[in-house]
Structure formats: C-alpha cells, structure tokens
Design a protein around this nucleic acid. Structure first.
Lengths: 332, 332
DNA sequence: TTGTAAGCGTTATCAT
DNA sequence: ATGATAACGCTTACAA
C-alpha cells in the first residue's frame, strides 16, 4: 500500500508527529527539518490518506455535486465553473450521476463537507436526513434546502422589455419544453412581459422537444416561414440560439438586420459567434461564485438564507438593433 | 455529527462490535439481536462512515472516473452504463472533471479501489505513480495502463465491407474531426476498406467540426448537393447520424430507399429512430461490462492484459438495403 | 453468541 | 523544537 507518515518519519529519523506537522507547514517545526521531511515525502511519493485525515479532522475538504442525468452545454459549463471556483477555495469536487437519493447517501458516507444538487423534476423532494448540508440550484421554494435561484422569469422579462423599448412589437420566444419547470419559468416570464406589446397574439411561443442546437434550427425555420415574421427572437438556451443563427444565415438573412436576437444563458461561449450574442441571465461566473460562497458559508455553519436570488443581467451586443417604425415592411 | 455504531450499541444494550457484525450481516450474531440492531440503526438514521471503514478495510468499494471535458451523448451513455454495471457489483462511482493528473491524485488520496480514465489527447501520458490501479478507455498502446479498446477501425471496416457486399459502390463517411485520434482511427478504417470499391475516389470523407447532430445535418446536406450522390453513408457517431436522417427526411428522401445508413456507436438510443438505425461498434453494454470486469479484476490484483480488445458488431436493421445494379440512376 | 482490544493513518494535545 | 499519546469510527482476530 501507500507511503504513510510513519515511513517518512523512519526515513527522516524523526517522530511521525513531527512529520505530520512539517507536512502541514506548521511553524512548530524548524526550517531545515521541515525541508528535509518534505524532500523525503516527495521522493517517496507520499500522498495523504484522505480517509484518515477526514476521520480525525471531521472535514474532507470535498464538495459533492449531484449531476442531473440530462446533458446540456450549460450544465457542463456550470459544473466546470463551479469546479474551478471551489478549487480556488482549495476544495475538491466530486460528482455523482446516481439518482439524487442515493447520490446524497454516498456523499454522506463519504462525509463530504457540502452537497450541491441540481433541482430537476422535483427530485429533491424525497431527500431525508442528510447530515451534510445541501444547496440546490433551481427555483426557490421548491425544495426544503437553501436554493440559489437565477430568476429565470425576470431574465426573460428583461429581454422582452428591452426589445419592446427598441421598438420591436413582433417578438417570438423559442424554447418551451414540456415537463420542465425551469423552462416553464422562462416561458411564463415571456408571456407576462409580452402583454405590454401592441398585439401579444402576434408573439408566438415556439415549443421544442429539446434544448439543443438542432431544435433551435428547426424552430427558427418555422418562424422564417411564418406569414407574419417576428422582428426579434428570444431563445431559451445557448444551443437553441446557435441553431437559430444557423437557420437565419442559411436564408441569407442576418442578425441584427433582419432579426434582433437575445439568448438566455449568460455564458462566455456566446462571445464566440460571428455576431456576438446578446444574452440575458445571470453570468455564469456569478452563479458559480455564489454557489461556491453559499457552500462555504454552509460549511462554516453560518446561517444562510433559504433563497439566494441572483440578479439576471441583460448583456446587449450588436445582435440587437433599434427598429425604426415602419421600416420593417419596407425591407421585406 | 452523525450516528455511530457506538450510539447504536448503547441504544441496543450490546457492545459495538456486535453492532458492527450485525450491520455487516455476519452469521455470528443471533437473528433477533441482528434484527433489533438493524431496526435501531434505521431509526437513528445511521450511515456508515466511509472514511473509517476504508481506513481499516483498505477498500473503499468506490471507483473513480476521470471524465473528459468534452461532452457527448455517447460519453454520457457510457458513464451511465458503467455506473449501473458497477452498482451491480456494489461499487460506487465517483466522477472528477479535473485535469487527468489532479483527478488521479484526488482519487489516490481518497483511496478509491480503481480508476477509469478516458484517453483523450494523450492526457494519460504524464500520469505517474498512482498507487491505485488505472484502466484507460481508448486505443491500445497509447498509454502505459491496461486499455479497453473497442477497435474503432475494424468497426468501420466492417460497415464498409457490408455495404460493398450489398452492392453499394458510392459510400461516404461523415465524421472526420481534426486532432482527435479516436476519430482518425475510424477514418483510417474507412479509407483502408474503401480501397476495395470500384472507384474509391467517388467515396468522400466528410469533415465535421464537431460530432453533434447539427454537424451531421450539415454534412448530409453537403452530400445531398453532391453531383454524384452516394448510395450509402457511414457516420462516425450517433448524433451525426441523427442529423443525417433529419437532412434526408427534409429532402423528402428516405432511408433506406435513397440512402443506406450505418452509424458508429452501438447504443440503445439508435433503436428509437423512425427507421431503426444500423450500427457498428461494440454494443454499449459490452463495453461497460468489460470495463467493469477489468476494474474488478484489477482490484482483485489479478493480472490483466495490457490491451483488452472488444469485438465490434455489425447490427443491421432496415436502414440498409441491397442495391440492384443500375437501379439507382433510374430512381433519380 | 457476545464482548474485548488492537490497529488502520492522521491530527491535536500534551509532555519533554 | 520535537516526541509520545489519545482519539476519530470502524473491522476483525481473539477471549470469554
């Protein structure tokens, strides 16, 4: 088996408690001794035993992430970002793709310091008796755990209001998805805000069967054939937007001349498009930062709020433009 | 903190070693005692402390998976499948999305029993001194660890040979991807096997920028515009195939009447298409089964082979048809 | 059938 | 500045 501090102690001719201190860089050990011990440890390929360490210190310095089974770019980006954030705070991230209940059970046995659960389809509802603190990422009020809520509804409303203020009256939302309360929240935001348009009925919500690029492509094609084309589009996810832009390009139309486009999902990848994409939503980095902060607060047994609402930001790029009244029809 | 076996012992009026035995379902404990202890444990919400357990038993009953950063349906399916397999053997799966080196380090500290690493871009090359045994999933001979190799090259060759035997002479391969040795392996298989065609130059390899559905869609559209359309397509991934079929359908053409189609990636999802997809490759379940078997063999310190080659299977469905010579041009 | 005790690798509290 | 030792929660001989 592995090298232990006792092996190092023997090799260095000191007691193993000295080794322990040296490895933790304690000021109670003289510099030369410390250096020598570190050298030997390195040379022997010592790796601290996490089990022993967390057994005595009651801390594993590890966060467990319960990953939803559904794969999406945003999820990946989110976990990657969270991973980085936690690394900054010198926490290790471990992921489980098991069903919520058993994943949480595993993390409890492993004594991770805290757990993040993506709230998907009410999956958090039947979780009971976790000794380890849990934070959910979803919609506040749906679970009994503190929740980081990115206010999807307001994010979309902001986008609608902005487009209205720019003179757009025919706005369409792409991204309704059955049985997905996260997506419904966005749709609700659209419907609520669009009531201020002159003719809300001219502002259709397009359903999709998934949130991938291809679905956005198909949805946009549908809109392109629409007798009364919108002048602006709001799309429910990064990938959908990607597909939209492809469809638009294919018809030799352009953003923003023919369509203004705002995408939900405020992730860095949107900057990479030909026309940088306007986005709405909480910037990815803020989400991961806040999630990390919430986790660390929980670990330090600080009382944290039941709901941590993050403020969506509208990030306008040249993918949107002012609409001069009447100009649209002339262009067509 | 959590409930320990001592708490249970106290509550049950027995010694804690009896509790330990009872919880492990040892025959050394009388039935009624056992039952009582189990009840109390349950009621108290006892969860074994994995740290303590693995500290003494030298076994964590956990497998670490180093997940590549790139997201693909097949990867998800693979990990999900592996997770299930390992569950069957009562192993827990933990995933890390950290860079290979540090992920392996983490898993070493956690004393997982074994590690699976997806060989991506030579990432396994600079891994040194893992006490924990490692299995890679990739191409044999590229890493210093035992490797499960699904023989991507032969898989594609099989598909080519089959299509040739069915009378197809104009076959196209969709899925070349820059800087991806796993994909290159497939392309090489295609090129090697297609030499047996009457005119290999009529059998183009289509490059894609990613392996997603949308890329398959675009690639297929390119082929549809081709002056000398192929009669059969081999596609490098499940998602690509999905996109192909959409493009074909959109042109009011059908599989297999206008195109025979074989997809790489032998995963169950392919059965869900309108026309069930012919596939080539090692069935997902066999891959995960063999990966699990290799891991468990390694854990039991059995010597395992450096390379475990899995045999690709051709799974023919109505998405392929016999081509009667000359018939194609008449149909056009 | 049950209880006692040693020990896993580490940290932390004392002594020295 | 360094060393001895108890403790963390659990498994496992061994003793009773």
């Amino acid at each position: 088996m592995g090298v232990t501090i006792k092996d190092i102690a023997k090799s260095a001719g000191v007691s193993y408690s000295t080794v322990s201190k040296a490895l933790r860089d304690s000021p109670l050990v003289k510099e030369p001794t410390k250096k020598k011990i570190l050298e030997i440890a390195n040379q022997l390929g010592y790796r601290p035993n996490a089990a022993a360490r967390s057994l005595v210190s009651k801390r594993s310095h590890t966060i467990g992430v319960v990953w939803p089974t559904i794969e999406r770019v945003t999820h990946s980006a989110l976990i990657t970002g969270l991973n980085k954030q936690l690394e900054k705070h010198s926490y290790t991230t471990l992921i489980s793709i098991n069903e919520m209940k058993s994943a949480i059970d595993t993390f409890n046995r492993y004594q991770v310091d805290a757990i993040v659960a993506f709230d998907e389809k009410n999956s958090t509802s039947d979780v009971s008796g976790s000794t380890v603190p849990i934070v959910t990422y979803g919609i506040a009020g749906r679970s009994s755990f503190p929740t980081v809520d990115v206010q999807r509804k307001q994010a979309i409303m902001k986008a609608v209001n902005y487009l209205l203020s720019m003179g757009h009256q025919k706005i369409s939302y792409i991204g309704d998805l059955e049985d997905d309360h996260l997506q419904k929240e966005k749709v609700n935001g659209f419907i609520e805000a669009i009531q201020k348009a002159e003719d809300p009925s001219a502002c259709p919500v397009i359903s999709v069967s998934d949130l991938e690029q291809y679905n956005g492509y198909m949805a946009m094609r549908k809109l392109l054939e629409h007798p009364n084309r919108p002048t602006a589009i709001i799309s429910g996810s990064h990938d959908l937007s990607h597909g939209c832009m492809q469809a638009i390009k294919e018809h030799s139309l352009t953003v923003p001349n023919d369509f203004s486009l705002i995408s939900y999902d405020n992730i860095p990848a949107t900057e990479a498009f030909e026309v940088p994409l306007s986005t709405t939503g909480v910037p990815l980095e803020i989400i991961t930062e806040q999630l990390a902060a919430a986790l660390i607060a929980l670990i330090q047994e600080e009382d944290i709020q039941e709901a941590i609402y993050l403020k969506p930001e509208l990030n306008i790029t040249p993918s949107c433009r002012q609409l001069n009244e009447g100009a649209v029809n002339e262009e067509d």
